[in-house]
Each structure stands twice: as structure tokens, then as C-alpha cells.
Design a protein around this nucleic acid. Structure first.
Length: 766
DNA sequence: CGGCTTTGTCATTAC
DNA sequence: ATGTAATGACAAAGC
């Protein structure tokens, strides 16, 4: 019988495997729930209960079949394990295999693309040749339309990814999600969103980034707008197909990640810089997480797959934020801008930035704001720019730092004076002071964060290492849901009832160790197989009420009593009041098939021997496990002496206590194991969070660097009416609260600007 | 019907 | 590691 079941199980599993290979889902569990309890485990993956150290947890993991851990049939156990491994491998490989392949293919293509070109419809303004593109008419329409979306905005090119910024682990662990540029962009969006939130924490309002969506921001933060969902679906579809429909998206050469135009800040230098909304939302160009090694990916494939699905949903919500939104364009004012400066930063564009980041990487949180840059508009040629600026800033603050402090609030930054001698900023590789001040605050935040991370004993490398280590044994986490303590498995599966005859036999044996004879075992088996499962399942449902006790740290408080921990099936069904009393009699019939007694004496316990010597007419198993009523009936049936009755009661008491002690020990062990697991999970989460934090900090730093370079680029390209560049010592670019960027004379207080931001939105013409 | 006692059981601890 | 006794807690039944 055992072998039959084993092979039957194996055959079914193999059949299931075949079906899974051809894409057919078979709920074998439902078919076999009565016969082959472990099958669910086999299909879904190994549970920690199969490990030796957690034998005692089989009861839980095997869908609550009540199998005593120790009684697990070893043959079945190993067979199960072998099959389980096979199925798990298939499961992991078969499900996302298509997406994986696609992803790999696209990854290669992405790499090629990234190295060969920077596909951006927008005009990329490199350090050297940025000015030539300033007047590019192609880019202007997009901005005019207020649809300064991903296409016409910043390009974070290979530089970004080369810096190694990594997306949150949840994203990066999903190879399937990286099958195309779209995916990457979505991930970027997701990452950007996270960064925004962090920026908000750092003091920079998210709205500062996202001007186009600013009005929708409030509702979008809570839930994605319908438009986003719609776009998200498209993205999702593209993702499934592994097709990159956004050919324009730049791709990182190193990581193969697509780098969407992160900074939507095409700048209209002369007249008005159209608000490039979407900066945050479309900032898909954020540095992405490096692809995980193939070995690692497989480990967490299962989890990653779930993460992918979750992220797809998330991205579906987020993607739309990247779509051009013209709402803010109205704020930008006049549209007579002739020149569009693409803020895209090529890898070559930031030689200055490197220095800046190293030495002056101090940004106030406002530096993370990337509003469209508006230059003071001089509508009338008669109006000198300076007049405008004076208008803007009635009160000059001598303290630039204080100005910057206010800038944080107002969204306007005023670069401090730069050495007046350097009129040609483009040639100056040094970051202007204004920007350093601008960066200062943010960098302080970063530093604090880094310090915090360090205080926790995690360097970046350590965090990564920890992450890898934690990922390496992801099996633990993956199987956490199937852990012995898993409430779902134990609770839900209880109703699935009887285990195989082998398990039930061993179970009874274990349950009545020292008391049961082989005949009793047979009885128990008979009872289990003989159709008493309903009673048992009911009992199973009743017992172990609080499997959730093992989830979360306060497990100890919730440890429930499992009064049926080791109850043999015979006793179990006997306890069911609805069960016919004949069950006990039936079991007694089988007890007549006992082998010779001397065989039992060897393995019987003291109480068994005592009972035998006292000629107790029924088994110790019955004595111990029968319900009180049946037990009393049993005693009443037989005319027993006082000594016999006393022995029987002692046997019952001792037997119950023995089981109680066993249960207690098992429970204690379970608690310890789950506590360990909880500690492990917490450590893992901690490492992951730290790693993410590091990555965010790095991303923010990169963004600040790019902001610096952009500021410099824009400023150097500004020309007054006479075609002369503005001296950085006298003028600075300032953000206004509405997202416009003004060039203003230094010394203008942000407070003043804040009062009259609207009036000052005038473009400065060359 | 509430309070009590008894009984049975379980969990826990110590040996 | 396991069995056993002691103890406390709890619930159910009976008074």
C-alpha cells in the first residue's frame, strides 16, 4: 500500500510537471488532498518542515494532517523531497522563462543601443555642443504643446547607470521586468517616486518636481489617476511582449537599462522655458539597479515573479505620470521662446559635475527641484533685464545662505556670487558657489543619512554583501509562507483530512509511543483509512487554533494549545462525539491480530508491560486516547480489579502527560525556530532597506550633480539683449514657486521673490 | 441563576 | 532525549 501510494504520487507529480510544462495548470492538490497530503508542498515548494530540524513541523506544513513529525515515513520523505526539488525547479523556470528569455534578448539589444547612440528625441545639450541645439526647432513644438514629457527632457545617459545607482531591490530582483526599455523606464518611475518621497522627507516638496502634475498630485499620491492606469496597462502589455515601444528611450550601456529622459527640463533660454512638468514623474532616467547575476535571480525567481506582478501594477499607476501634461504650461507664460535647451546630460557633459560632487556636493534640498527654468522675460525691448530683476527683488538680502534657506521654501534658488572675473562660465570647470550653497543642505541630509547608515554598521559594500547573503538563502524567505508555523498551511489544510495510511500508521505509533502495539498501529491505520477522516478533520480544525502564533515576533503571546498534537487517529476519531462508538470496537477487532506478545515486550513501555502483566484487556492506546465517556464505557464493560483500575488510570494520566510533554517541547522548539526565522527576516529586511537607502542617496547625489551642470549650462548660455553673457557674479538663476526659472541679480531675497513670483515671470531675450 | 466543587485535560516545569 | 510527577490553569459538569 505504501509503495502504491508512493508511486502513484510520483506519477501524478510527473504528470503535473508535464502539464505545467505545456502550460496547463493542474490543481493536483485538490485531487489528491485526501490521499497525498504533501503534494501541495511538492508543487508549491519545499517547506522548511522537510528539513530535519523541523520534522516536528510536518504537522503544520503537511496541511495539518496531524502527522507526527517523527513518524514521517522516510521513504516517502525522500521521495517527496526529490520530486519536490524537481518540481520546484520546473516551477521556477517554467513560469517566467519566456519573459526571462525576452528580457535577456532585450538586454543585449539595449546594451548595443546604449553604446551606439543616445536615442532621445530631445536635443541633448552636451557641454561642447549644447548651444548648437539651442535653437533646434524640432524640440520646441513638443514643449510648446505643453507636452514636455519624457521625450524632450533630461537624458540621464549611461553616466547615470554607470554610477551604479540601483533601484530598490524589489525591482531589481526581477529579471522579467527588465525585458525592455519600457520596463526599465517604469522601474525608473517607480524609483523616482520613491526618491521623491525621500526628497519630501528631506525637505523638498514633491510638487516642486512635478509641475505638470502638480495639480493632480494630491490625488495621484494616494491613488493612480485613471489615465495612469490606462497607460500603465499599455506599458504592461508592452512589457509582456517584451517589446520596447519607446524607441526613443536611451539605454544605459553598462546595465542595459533604459534610461528615460529623467529631467524634463528642456529650457527655453530666450523667451520662456516651458515648464517641464513631469520632471519627477517622468524621471525615468534615474539610475537603475544593476542586473542581478543569473545565479541570484534564480534563487528569488519565485519571489521576484510576485514582485514583478506587483511592480507591474505599480508601474501601471506610475507610468502615466510620465505622459506629457500641459496643465503647467499655462503657467509658463509667453511661448515666444525661440531656443530650447535640452537638459539632457550626456556622459561627456559633466566634467564639471564630478568636481562639484566631490568638493562642493552640498545641495539644499531645493536643489532636487527641477522646475522648468524661466528666464525673466523682457517683453518690451525697452525694459532692461536688470530692471526686471529689480522689480522681482525689492529687498536684497546680503546673506545668500539665508536666501537659500528661503529658497527651500519658495522653490527659488539664487546662486550666490561667483567670482566676477569669470564671465565665461562654460569655460569654468568649477561649480559656481551658488550651486554649492544650493547643494549644501541636501548634502547635509545625505551625510546624515550616510552617517546613520554607518552607525548601523552598514557600509554600502556591507549592505550589498548582506543583501547577497540574504538573497542566497532566499529559500528561507521564500518558504516562509510554508514554514512550519505557517497558519495557512496548517489551518486550511486541516480540513483536507486524512493522510496516507503510512502516515497515519506512523502517526499513531508516535502518538502512543510506549503504549501502542503493532496491532494498535494497525488499528489506528484502519481507523484512519477506514473512513473516519471527517471526524479527524473536524478535530484538526478544532485543534491548533492559533497557527498564526508563529508569525511575527509576539509569537509567544499567542501560542495556542494544540491538544491533539500527538493524538493517534484512532483516538482522534474516537474523540469526535459524532463518530459512532463502534469505531472503538472496530479497532478492538483488529487488535486481535496481534503478533505474539514477546515481540511486544521488547519495544513496549513500562506501562505496556505493566498492563500486560495486570492483564488489562485493552490497549494502552485506548486507555490514553479514548475520550472520557468511551473510556468509562470501556472500564464499565470489563470487570476490573482495583489494582487494574488504578493502573489504567495511571496509564492514562501518564500517557496524556507524556504527550503533553512532547507537545510542549515541540511547541517550544517551534517557537524558537520561528523566532530565529523572524530574526533572520528582520535582518534581511534591514539590510535591504539600508541598501535601498544607499542607492537612493546615490541617486540623489547624481541628480544634484546633474542639476549643477544644468544650471551652469543654462546660465552660460544666457545672453542679454546685447548678446553678452550674464556675469555669474551679478546674476543667478532662481526658481520660482510656480516652476518658472528667472535670472535675477544677486542679492534678491527669496522672500521678496516669493511675494511676487507671478509678476516676475518674464522671459529674458537674448 | 450564580457560586462552588469536582473532574478531566492540557501546559509547563523540574527531576 | 525522554519519561514522569507536580503544579497551575481552564472548561465542563454537577451540586
Amino acid at each position: 500500500m505504501l509503495y502504491l501510494k508512493k508511486y502513484f504520487t510520483e506519477g501524478l507529480i510527473q504528470f503535473t510537471i508535464l502539464l505545467s510544462l505545456i502550460g496547463v495548470r493542474v490543481d493536483v492538490d485538490s485531487y489528491l488532498s485526501n490521499q497525498l497530503p504533501p503534494l501541495r508542498e511538492i508543487i508549491l515548494g519545499p517547506s522548511s518542515a522537510y528539513t530535519q530540524t523541523q520534522f516536528h513541523n510536518l504537522r503544520n506544513t503537511l496541511d495539518g494532517y496531524g502527522i507526527h513529525p517523527k513518524s514521517v515515513d522516510l521513504d516517502q520523505f525522500f521521495t517527496t523531497r526529490r520530486l519536490l526539488n524537481q518540481v520546484r525547479q520546473l516551477d521556477r523556470l517554467s513560469v517566467p522563462s519566456t519573459e526571462l528569455t525576452t528580457w535577456l534578448v532585450h538586454r543585449d539589444s539595449e546594451t548595443v543601443v546604449s553604446t551606439s547612440s543616445q536615442p532621445s528625441p530631445s536635443i541633448t545639450l552636451d557641454n561642447g555642443g549644447g548651444l548648437e541645439d539651442v535653437n533646434n526647432p524640432d524640440a520646441t513644438p513638443a514643449m510648446r504643446g505643453g507636452s514636455v514629457g519624457t521625450e524632450s527632457t533630461y537624458n540621464l545617459n549611461a553616466e547615470d547607470s554607470s554610477l551604479g545607482a540601483v533601484a530598490p531591490e524589489g525591482n531589481q530582483e526581477q529579471p522579467g521586468s527588465r525585458d525592455g526599455n519600457d520596463d526599465l523606464s517604469k522601474e525608473d518611475i517607480d524609483l523616482i517616486d520613491i526618491l521623491w518621497r525621500q526628497d519630501i522627507d528631506l525637505g523638498a516638496g514633491r510638487e516642486v518636481f512635478n509641475y505638470s502634475n502638480r495639480q493632480k498630485e494630491s490625488e495621484e499620491e494616494e491613488k493612480p489617476s485613471p489615465r495612469e492606469n490606462k497607460d500603465g496597462n499599455e506599458e504592461q502589455e508592452r512589457w509582456r511582449n517584451g517589446v520596447n515601444l519607446q524607441g526613443a528611450q536611451p539605454v544605459d550601456g553598462e546595465t542595459g537599462e533604459s534610461i528615460p529622459e529623467q529631467f524634463p527640463a528642456p529650457v527655453v533660454v530666450t523667451a520662456e522655458i516651458v515648464s517641464n512638468e513631469e520632471v519627477p514623474s517622468t524621471s525615468q532616467g534615474l539610475p537603475l539597479a544593476p542586473l542581478r547575476p543569473a545565479g541570484e535571480t534564480q534563487l528569488d525567481l519565485e519571489q521576484q515573479w510576485q514582485d514583478i506582478m506587483a511592480i507591474m501594477e505599480l508601474q501601471a499607476m506610475e507610468v502615466n505620470s510620465s505622459s506629457p501634461n500641459s496643465s503647467s504650461s499655462s503657467d509658463s507664460g509667453t511661448t515666444d521662446s525661440n531656443t530650447v535647451v535640452n537638459f539632457g546630460l550626456s556622459t561627456r557633459s559633466t566634467p564639471v559635475n564630478q568636481d562639484v560632487s566631490l568638493h562642493q556636493a552640498s545641495l539644499p534640498s531645493c536643489s532636487q527641484d527641477f522646475p522648468p527654468i524661466f528666464y525673466p522675460q523682457v517683453d518690451s525691448t525697452t525694459t532692461p533685464p536688470r530692471t526686471t530683476m529689480l522689480r522681482l527683488s525689492s529687498s536684497n538680502s546680503s546673506s545668500i545662505n539665508s536666501t537659500f534657506g528661503a529658497t527651500n521654501l519658495t522653490g527659488i534658488f539664487i546662486p550666490p556670487h561667483v567670482n566676477s572675473s569669470s564671465t565665461n562660465i562654460t569655460s569654468t570647470p568649477i561649480l559656481p558657489d551658488p550651486f554649492s550653497n544650493l547643494l549644501e543642505e541636501s548634502m547635509l541630509d545625505e551625510i546624515s543619512l550616510l552617517d546613520l547608515a554607518m552607525e548601523e554598521g552598514f557600509s554600502q559594500a556591507q549592505a550589498s554583501q548582506l543583501e547577497e547573503e540574504l538573497d542566497s538563502d532566499s529559500g528561507l524567505s521564500l518558504d516562509s509562507s510554508h514554514s512550519p508555523a505557517s497558519p495557512s498551511s496548517s489551518e486550511t489544510s486541516c480540513s483536507s483530512a486524512a493522510s496516507s495510511s503510512s502516515t497515519s500508521a506512523t502517526f499513531s505509533e508516535e502518538g502512543a509511543v510506549g503504549y501502542s502495539t503493532d496491532s494498535e498501529v494497525a488499528t489506528a491505520e484502519e481507523g484512519a483509512v477506514g473512513g473516519y477522516q471527517p471526524g479527524y478533520s473536524k478535530l484538526c480544525r478544532m485543534s491548533y487554533q492559533n497557527p498564526s502564533q508563529f508569525h511575527g515576533l509576539p509569537q509567544l503571546d499567542n501560542i495556542g494549545h494544540n491538544h491533539t498534537y500527538n493524538l493517534p487517529l484512532s483516538s482522534v476519531f474516537a474523540e469526535d462525539p459524532e463518530l459512532p462508538i463502534s469505531s472503538g470496537k472496530k479497532a478492538m477487532k483488529h487488535s486481535k491480530l496481534q503478533p505474539p506478545q514477546d515481540l511486544y515486550d521488547k519495544h513496549s513501555s513500562r506501562d505496556e508491560r505493566r498492563a500486560r502483566s495486570m492483564k488489562i484487556p485493552f490497549s494502552n492506546e485506548k486507555i490514553i486516547n479514548l475520550p472520557v465517556e468511551e473510556f468509562n464505557e470501556l472500564l464499565a464493560k470489563h470487570h476490573l480489579s482495583e489494582g487494574q483500575l488504578a493502573l489504567i488510570r495511571d496509564i492514562r494520566r501518564r500517557g496524556k502527560n507524556k504527550m503533553a510533554a512532547q507537545n510542549c517541547r515541540k511547541r517550544k522548539l517551534d517557537t524558537i525556530i520561528n523566532l530565529e526565522q523572524g530574526v533572520h527576516d528582520l535582518r534581511r529586511n534591514k539590510g535591504r532597506l539600508l541598501k535601498e537607502k544607499m542607492e537612493f542617496i546615490r541617486s540623489i547625489r547624481q541628480m544634484k550633480q546633474k542639476m549643477q551642470s544644468l544650471y551652469q549650462e543654462v546660465f552660460t548660455q544666457l545672453r542679454d539683449e546685447e548678446g553678452r553673457p550674464y556675469p555669474p557674479s551679478e546674476y543667478s538663476l532662481q526658481y520660482s514657486a510656480d516652476g518658472s526659472v528667472l535670472i535675477m541679480p544677486r542679492g534678491v531675497t527669496t522672500a521678496e521673490q516669493h511675494r511676487k513670483p507671478e509678476k516676475k515671470q518674464k522671459d529674458k531675450k537674448k
